[in-house]
Design a binder for these strands. Structure first.
Length: 318
DNA sequence: AAGTTGGTCAACCGCATGCGA
DNA sequence: ATCGCATGCGGTTGACCAACT
């Protein structure tokens, strides 16, 4: 004996909804409220399965739905939450007002997953940096039963997981910039001109690094190294940039130890690269910044696995 | 102009989960 | 503790459309 179907399928309509059906469903729900999906089609005079009615209402007819394209801000939230939660679309959707899980799932599958896959292929060996609390959260099984090993989580993420470094240390700059694409000198030999600004001159030209403050100040318990690097902005002096109209660029990770800087906009003739002495040495990236202490106390809320996902998400987005 | 291909998105399906009896 | 029902969730499918050949 098989499972009883959710509704009697014989004679039921499938496929696209007509405007007449939409009207019927909308009127009925506005008059009687949501719920009782099984009996709804009969009461509303619809030849549809209750599940189909529910889906149509939730994904299309609800008045609080937001229409139009996903904004860059929303995309940012989706990427961030997906990195932490995986394919838990409804949970992600609950943090985007007016968006449905189906919409976000579709957007992910058609727009974002390919971009990220491509990016990851270039950075297969770039680990994710995760602190104890976050790892503990990731190890929780769906439904809260038992825990997964770190290796299982790594397999799911497709990346190695590295422990979070001590962020409270003051860092020193290392890194070399070379405008001939050839690395020049040892990164560790560089000196910090102004640690508070994260700037320093490097041999071969007066190129200065301006690290993205927002990235470094983020109270995030999971900082993806590649994300961090792609957000680094590089600034250089006009005389060094030559014909460039813009003097900022985005840095893309080439491999674990090297980031390649390509000049965008009108810049076509100059290409630069810089190396970081040790891929997972946070001092390499801190660029003279004094790290703010992470305010989140991992042990209190999350390490024990007691926190609700909602609390984690709010915190991640704050 | 007709056929093909690829992307997008609405909708379906099966399984999981929660809850009351 | 178990069962059955209702609902929720995520993976998958297929219709539609635009771009391309």
């Amino acid at each position: 004996m098989g499972r009883r179907p959710c509704c009697e399928k014989v004679g039921l309509k499938k496929g696209r909804w007509t405007t007449e059906e939409d009207d019927r469903l909308k009127k009925y729900i506005l008059a009687n409220g949501e719920g009782s999906w099984r009996s709804l089609p009969k009461n509303a005079g619809l030849l549809r399965c209750g599940k189909s009615c529910r889906l149509r209402w939730i994904n299309y007819l609800r008045s609080d739905l937001k229409r139009g394209n996903i904004t860059p801000q929303e995309e940012d939230v989706i990427i961030k939450l997906h990195a932490s939660l995986g394919n838990r679309w409804s949970l992600i959707a609950s943090h985007l007002t007016g968006r449905t899980d189906n919409e976000i799932k579709n957007y992910w599958n058609s727009h974002l997953s390919r971009q990220i896959q491509t990016f990851r292929r270039r950075n297969d060996d770039v680990p994710v940096i995760v602190d104890e609390a976050k790892l503990s959260l990731l190890q929780r099984r769906k439904g809260g039963r038992g825990r997964r090993s770190k290796a299982e989580v790594e397999a799911e993420v497709g990346r190695k997981i590295l422990p979070m470094p001590d962020l409270e240390r003051e860092s020193s700059v290392c890194g070399a910039v070379d405008d001939t694409t050839e690395e020049r000198g040892s990164p560790n030999e560089e000196t910090v001109d102004d640690p508070a600004e994260g700037r320093h001159d490097v041999g071969g030209g007066s190129v200065s690094l301006d690290f993205n403050e927002d990235v470094f100040e983020e109270d995030d318990m999971s900082l993806d190294l590649s994300e961090l690097l792609t957000n680094v902005e590089v600034e250089w002096n006009d005389d060094a940039a030559g014909t460039c109209e813009s003097n900022t660029a985005t840095v893309a990770v080439v491999d674990a130890g090297t980031a390649e800087m390509e000049l965008g906009g009108e810049c076509s003739s100059v290409s630069s690269s810089f190396s970081l002495d040790s891929p997972w040495n946070w001092e390499s990236f801190a660029g003279g910044h004094e790290w703010d202490a992470v305010e989140f106390d991992a042990g209190d809320d999350f390490a024990g696995g007691a926190a609700e996902p909602d609390a984690v998400i709010s915190w991640l987005l704050s």
